[in-house]
Design a protein around this nucleic acid. Structure first.
Lengths: 228, 228
DNA sequence: GCCTACCCTGTGGTCCGACCACACGGGTAG
DNA sequence: CTACCCGTGTGGTCGGACCACAGGGTAGGC
């Protein structure tokens, strides 16, 4: 058992037992080191890992915001893991697209049945209509739109995975924009498809919304030649 | 930009550019520190994070197995993230169950259509028939079975997520076994349901396999009172 | 000439002690 | 009473040191 793992197990046990809650704070690094009988560098390695896992957020200084505060941020670590493993080329882009289709069509089906709150989603679509939007800005809003749709289904795990997927591939999507024959025309098409999806959701048409979402995602990746 | 992030970005860039491949090795910690103009502790924190992300595996000694070797192991970091966030109680067990149902019923549907190789799966079921199996051993084999089913669909991302989900909740499942009125009877039922699922897959009955998988998962969690 | 045992070398693992930047909060000067 | 300032505790970084480990080259014995 490596020394830094002592800290990880200690923190996980404290979380499971309720001794640590969201918003609470870890003991200082020096205190933790003495309590566990290890050195401060070992504690620091563990705190870094916890930070990378989205369990703590560290800050310097003093006051309630300083130190290692317990948070629950599963999206950034999932994003990091996906990004790194995409970089190794052992995670095919096609599998990512297939997963998006599965999660988003399911979310659309779920959301259609519960008369969802679509106002914030429509507000996003209006912002995407702004003229002169760069591909980068457009795709950030597009990601927000898709994540918001996934969130309508009310499953925090699936919503987190969706957001991670979208963030992890953002760079790859941007890099593929030059593959498109006509970016402006593509953007118009995507906007129309978004409106159609929201309309199906508002109408409670689960099957229609799922089909539109599936076609929307697969169509873009084929046009951008990303899911070869 | 924190110093240890320099190492993370450097490694990710090297991976994306092909300068680092699976099986390759990171420069030594002392070398990396000098190249980036930072100290060895900062490099170590980054390597720890990469290890926790499943991108490198470190070992002491010398030879080709020593040092920080590039690997592609997405399951353990996903498991760790899920376990930690389950411990914070900000990731409801019900959402995990819902996700399992979604992923596994989809995988069953996919697998049924491609006349999958079921021999290793059946071998697992035979091992689960061994008398006197403890709940711990039974659920480990059960997890292997479900992960193998998810793997039949051929999507490495979904298979990795499935395996992570199953590993992350293993402890919670075991802790819930005492909630069952009759463990032995439950085990017999689970075995029969497994056989039925495999039979549906072998017959190419996609809808049947998906329905059986859904009932199998939801039934167990309701019996164990886990998905409240 | 061959084989065996030993030691050298390089790796990560751990620790210590020190200094820095930062931000809050209380004490002090106006 | 107010505004400024510095004390104090936090994480961030650094350099150096020593350890355990495993491989490989070398010197010795056979």
């Amino acid at each position: 058992m490596k020394n830094y793992e002592l800290v990880l197990h200690r923190v996980e046990a404290d979380l499971a037992a309720g001794r640590l809650r969201i918003g609470g704070r870890l003991p200082g690094e020096r205190v933790l080191a003495e309590q566990l009988g290890i050195s401060r560098p070992s504690v620091r390695e563990a705190v870094r890992v916890l930070g990378a896992m989205g369990v703590v957020r560290t800050a310097t200084g003093s006051g309630p915001e300083a130190g290692a505060v317990i948070v629950a941020e599963p999206v950034s670590p999932l994003t990091a893991v996906l990004r790194l493993h995409l970089a190794t080329n052992h995670l095919p882009m096609g599998d990512v697209v297939q997963t998006r289709v599965l999660l988003e069509s399911w979310a659309a089906r779920e959301a259609a049945g519960r008369s969802p709150e679509l106002a914030p989603v429509l507000e996003l679509l209006d912002r995407m209509d702004a003229p002169g939007l760069s591909p980068d800005e457009f795709h950030r809003l597009d990601a927000e739109f898709h994540v918001a749709l996934a969130g309508l289904a009310g499953n925090v795990l699936i919503a987190a995975v969706m957001e991670s997927l979208r963030s992890a591939i953002h760079g790859y999507v941007l890099a593929a924009v030059p593959n498109l024959p006509d970016w402006e025309a593509t953007a118009v098409g995507l906007r129309n498809e978004h409106r159609a999806i929201v309309a199906a959701l508002a109408a409670g048409d689960a099957d229609g919304a799922a089909k539109l979402v599936t076609a929307h995602i697969q169509g873009f990746y084929q046009a951008a030649r990303l899911s070869s």
